[in-house]
Measured scan of single mutants.
Amino acid sequence: GLTEEQKQEIREAFDLFDTDGSGTIDAKELKVAMRALGFEPKKEEIKKMISEIDKDGSGTIDFEEFLTMMTA
């Protein structure tokens, strides 16, 4: 499992990506986040990433899903 410290770091990354503070990361926010990390993702790639992570089919990534992605 994760230490509380690791969870906190992932939470901070999540909050950075969640620019509108909605508690979820949408495609637009993910794209901005990827760019910040030096990637140039295409729209299809973003969609694919979200569909792989987005277990509940909401079209957005919540913290639990993000946590799973970061620790996979």
Rank of each mutant, 00 (worst) to 15 (best):
M70H: 04
I50W: 07
F39H: 06
I10Q: 01
T3M: 03
V32G: 15
D26G: 10
T68F: 10
F14T: 00
S51V: 05
T60C: 12
G57W: 11
A33N: 01
D20T: 07
E5D: 08
E4Y: 08
E5A: 14
T3Q: 04
E52P: 01
D18Q: 04
R11H: 04
A33T: 03
I46E: 03
E12H: 12
R11W: 07
K47A: 11
T68D: 07
I25W: 04
E5G: 09
G57N: 08
E29R: 08
T24I: 04
M69H: 04
S51Q: 10
T60N: 07
G59V: 03
E5Y: 10
D62M: 07
P41E: 05
Q6F: 13
G23N: 03
I61L: 06
D62K: 13
A13E: 02
L67S: 02
K48Y: 07
E9L: 14
S22V: 03
K47N: 09
A72C: 14
F66I: 02
G59P: 03
G21E: 03
G57A: 06
E65L: 12
A13V: 14
I46P: 01
Q6N: 07
E29K: 05
K47M: 13
K31I: 15
K42T: 15
L67G: 00
E64W: 09
E40Q: 10
D62F: 14
E65A: 14
G38C: 13
M69V: 06
T24S: 08
G59T: 09
F39C: 13
L2P: 06
K28P: 03
F17R: 02
K31G: 14
F66L: 02
G38D: 03
E44A: 06
A33Y: 05
Q8K: 14
D20A: 05
K43R: 11
L16E: 04
K42A: 10
G38P: 01
G57D: 07
L37W: 04
A33I: 15
T60A: 08
L2V: 05
T19P: 07
T19Q: 07
G59Q: 06
L16I: 08
T60V: 09
S51I: 05
E12L: 14
R11C: 05
K47G: 09
G23W: 02
Q6I: 07
T68I: 10
I46W: 13
T24W: 10
